[in-house]
Amino acid sequence: MYPENLYYTKDHEWLKVEGEEAVVGITDFAQKQLGDIIYVDLPQVGKILEAHQTIGTVESVKSVSDVYSPVSGEVIEVNSELSQTPDLINKDPHGQGWIVRLKIKDKSEINNLMKAADYEKYLEGLEH
């Protein structure tokens, strides 16, 4: 069920590579764990991120979760629609619920991420 064109992290972010850029969001598993999302704290455009650095936070009614950058790069766009309709992340986590677009610093870092099949196996491990 997890799109094969995305890369995944153990912290349940996804990364979609588009040339030298990449889109980042949180996975369907992550949004289900959080429940109804009501607030997303987005970074400033231009922010330079190291891999694993906090991009922002996603808050549901009950909990708060940091979102970490899967790779190093510069924030070149944020999904400003999330300010008004944060539940886009619940409705379409791998699509309209994207969080930021990055200019990737070092494409070799992508090799550290999981493919869909590996991520699904990883989730199975968490559920048992």
């Binding site: 429940g35 009501i38 009614v61």
Partner: peptide, 11 residues
Amino acid sequence: PVEYKGIIDEH
């Protein structure tokens, strides 16, 4: 059970 359909709908 912490939620079924979602906290907001349930509330």
